[in-house]
Design a protein around this nucleic acid. Structure first.
Lengths: 213, 213
DNA sequence: TACAGTACTGAACGTGCGTTCAGCCAACAG
DNA sequence: CTGTTGGCTGAACGCACGTTCAGTACTGTA
C-alpha cells in the first residue's frame, strides 16, 4: 500500500470521527506513519485531501452500486450492507459526508434518486411494485428512508442491541421494512382518518401562514 | 433577550454549519454582540457551551413533543414540521447532533423509540395500525425513517425542488409516506420474491462468514 | 560519472485558537 | 458616602495549527 493510499485511508477514518477542523494534518500523518509535510506534498492542502476523500468514497460507492445493478444483486439494503462488510469506514464516511452536504456526495444523492426512480419503474412494469401518482417523489422518499439508516446506524445499533449491518440486524430491519412496505403499516380505516388529519393540519398551517405566522 | 441567550442562540446556529472545531468562540461572541470572554464567563468553556446547546435543543424537542402528544396533534411528520416552522435552526441542530451521536441526543432518540412503540401499540388497539411480530423493531425502523428526513432535509429539498418542511413539501412527502405505508410499496407477488431474495442473500452472507470473509 | 525526477523529512514561520485575568461599571445594601 | 456583587471587557499568554522550504535519499537515464 503506497504512502498516498495510507494517508487517504487514515483521513477517511478520521474525518467522520473528529470533524474537519478537529482532524489535524499531523494526526493523519501519524496514523499513516509519514511526516505531515508528505500529506501536503501529495494532496496540496488539507482541503485538497478532504476533496480527495470525498471523491474517493463517492466513486467507490458509485462503481459498487453500478456493478451490483449489473449483477442484479442490488436490492437496496443488501447493497449498503455489502459495502459495510467490505469497508465500514467507507459507509461511516458516506453518512458523515451526506449529513454535511458535501458537493460530491450531493451529486451522488441525486444520481441515486434517478437510479431508484428508474429501478422502481422497471419493477413496476414487471408487476412487482405498485404504481404511484408521483414516482419521483416516491423515489426521493424511499431513498431518504434508506439512507437514513446509513446516517443513523449508530442509533439503530444501540436501539436494536445489534449491528444493523451484520447478518441478524440486516435480516431484522429488512423484515420490518418488507412488513410496512408490503402489508402496509396502516389499516385502510386509518388511512382515511390520517388523510383527514393531513388535510386538517394543512388547513391549520395555511391559516397560520395567512395570519402572518 | 439576555446576553446568555443570545450567545446560546448564536452557537446553536453556528455549530451545525461550521462544526465544533470550525466554530470559534470569537465568532459566536461576534454574532451575539459580546466579547469572547463573556462566552466563557457564562458557559465555563467551549465544551460547556456545546453541552448547553445539546441540552437546550433536546429539552425543547422533548417538551414540544410531550405537549403535542397531550394535545393529540403529534402525528409524526407534522410534529417535526411544526418545530421547523417555529425554529429552523433547532431542527438543523437536531439533525446535526443526531448524526454526530451526541449523548443527550442519543438519549432523546431512545426515548422517541419508546414513545413511538407506545403510540403504535395504542393505535393498534384502536385498529388503526396493523400488528407486528416485532413491535420494537418496527418502532426503530419507522423512527429512523422519520428522522432520516431531519438529517437529510437539505438533499430532499434539492431533489424535490421544494422546502420539505414547507406546506407543499410536507404535504407531498406525507402523501408518499401514506402511499407506501398504507397500500404498500410492493405487490403481494413481489413480497414472495423479495423474501426469497433476502433468504438467498442471507445464506450467501452466512457462507462468506463461514469462509472467514 | 553526472543529471533529473520523485518520494520524503525536519525545522521553522506566522496565524488564530481557547483560555486567563485584572479591572471597569452599574445596581444595590448598609 | 462606602462596600459588594455580578455582568462584562481588553489585553495578553501559550499552544497547536496549516503550511513552507531547503535539503536528503533513492531510482532511473545517459
Amino acid at each position: 500500500m503506497t504512502a498516498e493510499a495510507r494517508i487517504r485511508q487514515a483521513a477517511v477514518e478520521r474525518f467522520p470521527v473528529d470533524g474537519i477542523e478537529g482532524t489535524t494534518v499531523r494526526a493523519i500523518a501519524a496514523d499513516a506513519g509519514v511526516s505531515p509535510a508528505l500529506v501536503l506534498h501529495h494532496f496540496g492542502s488539507k482541503q485538497g485531501l478532504l476533496d480527495a476523500c470525498d471523491h474517493y468514497v463517492v466513486e467507490l460507492v458509485r462503481t459498487t452500486k453500478t456493478r451490483a445493478i449489473a449483477d442484479g444483486t442490488a436490492t437496496d439494503a443488501g447493497f449498503i450492507a455489502s459495502m459495510y462488510r467490505m469497508a465500514p469506514p467507507i459507509v461511516r464516511y458516506l453518512g458523515w459526508s451526506l449529513s454535511r452536504g458535501a458537493p460530491a456526495t450531493s451529486r451522488l444523492f441525486d444520481e441515486l434518486v434517478q437510479e431508484s426512480e428508474r429501478l422502481l419503474a422497471v419493477a413496476e412494469e414487471q408487476g412487482m411494485v405498485r404504481s404511484s401518482p408521483d414516482p419521483h417523489g416516491r423515489a426521493v422518499v424511499l431513498l431518504t428512508m434508506q439512507l437514513g439508516f446509513v446516517v443513523l446506524h449508530e442509533h439503530v445499533s444501540r436501539a436494536l442491541g445489534m449491528d444493523p449491518f451484520g447478518l441478524d440486524g440486516l435480516m431484522r430491519i429488512t423484515e420490518r421494512e418488507m412488513e410496512v412496505f408490503t402489508g402496509g403499516l396502516f389499516t385502510p380505516e386509518a388511512a382515511r382518518v390520517a388523510s383527514q388529519g393531513v388535510e386538517a393540519a394543512s388547513q391549520l398551517m395555511r391559516k397560520e401562514t395567512a395570519d402572518g405566522g
